[in-house]
Amino acid sequence: MELLRCRGLRKEFAGQVVLDQLDLTVSEHQVVALIGASGSGKSTLLRCVNLLEELDDGTIELDGEDISDPRVDPDRVRRRIGMVFQAYNLFPHLSVLENVTLAPRRVHRRARAEAEAQARELLDRVGLGARADAYPDRLSGGQQQRVAIVRALANSPRLMLLDEVTSALDPELVGEVLAMIRDLKADGMTMVLATHEMSFAREVADQVCFLDQGRVVESGPPEQVLGEPTQPRTRQFLHRIIEAGRL
């Protein structure tokens, strides 16, 4: 079943075209990895899907509903989508537990005890139960990013958008975040992730899309896109990645 369908997306910033006639379809339980150089439109695509940016053209359908229709309430749409950012974006004035329970309590109007019990269970599952009352600045980058993922999961989203979630992390902390995403896939979560971790994309993604200048240049199973790319620009990009020692 198709969960997300983007058609002909266009987005400009100050006269520069960032997304250009972009098409993307994501089925339920599927993991799609977006790869491409900085500025290729990966983050903008994710932000558009979460309605954090206004489209300049095209349509986005979530569960068959046109969410790019301006009459749609964006808050209602975002409740069904979890988003995780490169810089974690935890709320620094709230404890870990308060970060995780904010949306369940304020958006879904759950009782405090119920929301906290659910949050503690989620935190326990990722090994952060002991840090529930700590403030974000006392946590390592990896721990902060795991809290950010838990915070998004507490909304029980249909779809998770992960925007280069390991790019700000020290190398030895990347593993713990990737392990968590692996678990999410095992649970059947539908995900779209922008990433620079090619080996991780190869391992976890069902489909890899190579973006260049706001278009999907090549997409398919990871072995094909990352192993035997047909497009010259994909080859060029992967070649640079290999030279940088990231594959």
Binding site: A103, V107, N155
Partner: peptide, 16 residues
């Protein structure tokens, strides 16, 4: 602004 983006992405309204 990233704090606003994080809050809105959780489905919080502008007022919340």
């Amino acid at each position: 602004p990233s704090q606003l983006a994080a809050a809105r992405s959780l489905g919080l309204t502008y007022r919340q």
